[in-house]
Design a protein around this nucleic acid. Structure first.
Lengths: 361, 361
DNA sequence: CTGTTAGCGCATTCAA
DNA sequence: TTGAATGCGCTAACAG
C-alpha cells in the first residue's frame, strides 16, 4: 500500500506554513495507488493507465496538492532555477535585461531567483546564499560586483558574467561598446566640434570603460588629444552639477559625450533652462536610447543596445553550462546601433518616429 | 563517526551539475566531526567549541562546500523564498515595486523568485510551478492575472494581491487612486476645461479602474457628465493613435486625462509635432511621474505613487502571512501625491525641479 | 560540547 | 502497468 513508512506522530509533523499539507503520500493513499504512480502521472513519465491517471488527478485536485519543490530538487539533484545578480533596477537597462533573462529561463523550465546588490551590506554573503538555491548564476559585472565574488562562486556553480571580460574560466556576454562609442564620437567630431568631454566613470563598470576607450580611439584616429573624463556616478543629480560646471566655464567644451542617457538628458535640460542652445552651443549625446530620449527636443542622439537579447543570451549560456557545457573562452558580443537625432547637431527631423538608424558592426 | 549511512556506489551518485560535490558528510569527515556539528557551526546554532568551529570552517573552505538549499528546505519545511508575479517590467513602475520587494525580502532572509506573466502561454501553469518553490506569493492584480489564478493559489500558499480589492481571504495592498484621480481631474476642471477625456482601459487593471472612478467622481461633483473613456492598452504606439484622433476632431476634447505617463507623453509629443499648443489647446495629465515627465516641455502634471514602499509593504505582509499571521481584511492603502507642472495649464516654472535622486545606469 | 538517529517529500531503480 | 524500497543532503530532537 501507499502509506508513508512508519510516519511518527511526533510534534514536528506540522505541514509547511500555509501549505495545504497534502503530500505525495496522501494523494497516493486517497487514489489507492503507490506514490510511484502518483509521481509518474505528475511527471508524465512512464506509462500509466488512463483509469489510474484519472484517479490520481482527482485525488490531487481534491487534496489541493502542491508538490514540494525542495523535495523534488533533492531527489533530482537539480534546483531547476537560475540565479541572476544585478546592481539594481532603475532605468530601462536592467529591467530589459531581466525580462529577457526571465523569458528565456522560463522557456527552459527554470525559475529565476533575483538578487539586487545595491543596498546590501554583505554582497558576498548574499551571493553565497543564492548559490545555495540555484544551479547557476548570471552576474552583472560592475564595480558593485567585485570580480572576487564571481571568482569565488566559480568552481561551485556555473557562472556567466554579463558585461566584462571573461576571466579564470568565467565566460562573459555583453553588448558592443568600443566601436559604437568610437563611431558616435567620430560623428560628433565630424560636426566640427573640437572640445569634447566624456561624462561618466570609466571605472564604474566594464562597459563604461569600453565606451570611454572608443571615445579616446576616435580622437586618436584624428590625431587629437582627448580631454580627461568628467568622472561622475550615475545619478540624475550629477547631470545638473556637470551642467553648472559647463555653464560656469569650469569645464571647457562644445560637446559632451555621456555614458548614458540619463546624464545626457539632465545636462541638456539644465543647459536649456539656462537659455543655452543645444546643439548650437553644446552638442550632447548619450547611450541607451531611453524613452525620454525620443520625446525631448532636440531628440537625443544615442546608442541602442539589444539589452533584452543580452538577457536571453545570458540565460541560454547559463543553461548550457548547467547542462554540463564547457565555458566559452571568447566573449559573446551583441551588436549595437547608433541612433542619430538632433542633439548632436544634425538637422532634427520629427523626433518621435523612425529615427535615423544605422547599424554598427 | 561521520560517514554517510551505507551510501551506495551506484550509478546515480554524481553530484549536481557544476557543483563541487561536497556535502555535509564530506565536510564532517574531513573535519573529523559529526554532520550535526557541521550543521551547528554553519547555522550558528547550539554551542560549538571554537577549536572545533575552526576545523569545520577549514574543511568547508577546503572542500569549497556549498550547502544544498533544497535539502535544508526539506528539513526545515520552509523554502525561505517569496514568489512575486508581475506582468512585465517596462517602465519604472514594476521595477520600482520589485526593488522594494526584493530589498525587504532580503532583509527578512528570503530570496525572491520572480515570474513575469507577459508572453507566457500558460500563466496558471507557471504560477502553480512557482507555488512549488516558495512559501508565499505576491501577485500583481491585472487583467493578465485572472483572479481565478490567485484564488486557486489561495488555500495552498499565502497570497498577497498588489493592487486590486481583497477577496475571498486574499488580502491586498495598493496605492491610493480614486481620491488623487478626483483631485487631479478637479484641478483640470478648475482650469476651465470642459471637455475632458479619460485615456486608458479601466478594465485593464484594478488601479486604472479606480482612477477612472475618480475621474467620474470629479465630474459628478460639478454636476458634469463625464465622456466615455477612450479605451486603449498601455503601449506607446497607442498614444500616437489617440493623438491622431484628437487632431482629426474625432475625439472632441480640450483636456486629456491619461491612465499613465507613457500615454500622456506620447500624446503630447504627437500633438506638439503637429503644431498644436499644449496646454493651450489641449491640457494633458498623466500618472506615475516617470523620468521623462520632468524633462519634457511643458512639464507633465501627474501623480506620484510610493511604488517602492508598496513593494516593501507587499513583502512585509507576505512574510507575516508565511509566519502564520492572519490575512488582513482591509486593504492596505498607501498615499499618493499630485504633482502639478505645466501640461495641465498651470504656469510652468523651471521644469527640472530637483529630481528625486535616483540611481540610473 | 558533541554524536546518533530519524525523518523531510519526492524520483527512481528494480521486481513483479 | 504497478508497487516496494532506497536515497537525495540537511536539520533537529535526543542522548551522552
Amino acid at each position: 500500500m501507499a502509506t508513508p513508512p512508519e510516519r511518527g506522530a511526533g510534534p514536528s509533523t506540522a505541514p509547511i506554513a500555509g501549505a495545504s499539507g497534502a503530500t505525495i503520500y496522501s494523494v497516493a493513499e486517497l487514489a489507492g495507488v503507490s506514490i510511484a504512480t502518483v509521481s509518474r502521472v505528475l511527471q508524465g513519465a512512464g506509462t500509466v493507465s488512463s483509469k489510474t491517471t484519472e484517479k490520481v488527478l482527482a485525488a490531487v485536485d481534491e487534496l489541493n496538492y502542491v508538490p514540494l519543490g525542495a523535495a523534488r530538487s533533492l531527489a533530482v539533484r537539480q534546483h531547476e532555477a537560475h540565479g541572476l545578480v544585478l546592481p539594481e533596477l532603475s532605468g530601462p537597462y536592467y529591467s530589459e535585461l531581466l525580462m529577457g533573462f526571465e523569458s528565456r529561463a522560463a522557456d527552459l523550465g527554470q525559475s529565476v531567483t533575483l538578487m539586487l546588490t545595491d543596498g546590501k551590506a554583505d554582497i558576498a554573503r548574499a551571493v553565497r546564499q543564492l548559490a545555495t538555491r540555484v544551479d547557476g548564476i548570471a552576474v552583472f559585472g560592475s564595480a558593485a560586483m567585485p570580480p572576487a565574488v564571481a571568482r569565488a562562486l566559480h568552481g561551485q556553480k556555473p557562472v556567466v558574467m554579463i558585461t566584462g571580460e571573461p576571466q579564470d574560466g568565467i565566460e562573459s556576454v555583453g553588448a558592443e561598446n568600443a566601436h559604437s562609442a568610437e563611431e558616435l564620437t567620430e560623428h560628433v567630431l565630424a560636426h566640427g566640434r573640437m572640445r569634447l568631454v566624456f561624462v561618466g566613470d570609466p571605472d564604474g563598470a566594464p562597459d563604461i570603460h569600453e565606451r570611454h576607450e572608443g571615445f579616446v580611439a576616435a580622437h586618436r584616429a584624428r590625431g587629437l588629444q582627448p580631454a580627461e573624463p568628467v568622472r561622475v556616478p550615475f545619478r540624475e543629480g550629477e547631470g545638473e552639477a556637470v551642467a553648472e560646471r559647463l555653464l560656469a566655464g569650469e569645464i571647457d567644451a562644445d560637446a559632451v559625450v555621456c555614458a548614458n542617457d540619463e546624464l545626457a538628458l539632465s545636462i541638456m535640460s539644465r543647459l536649456q533652462d539656462a537659455g543655452r542652445d543645444v546643439p548650437g552651443e553644446f552638442a550632447i549625446v548619450g547611450w541607451d536610447d531611453v524613452m525620454a530620449s525620443r520625446y525631448v527636443r532636440p531628440g537625443m542622439t544615442t546608442v541602442r543596445q539589444p539589452v533584452r537579447e543580452l538577457g536571453i543570451l545570458a540565460a541560454d549560456r547559463l543553461h548550457q553550462r548547467v547542462q554540463g557545457g564547457e565555458p566559452l573562452a571568447e566573449r559573446q558580443v551583441l551588436p549595437t546601433q547608433v541612433i542619430i537625432r538632433g542633439s548632436c547637431g544634425c538637422a532634427s527631423s520629427r523626433s518621435t518616429p523612425s529615427p535615423t538608424e544605422r547599424r554598427t558592426r
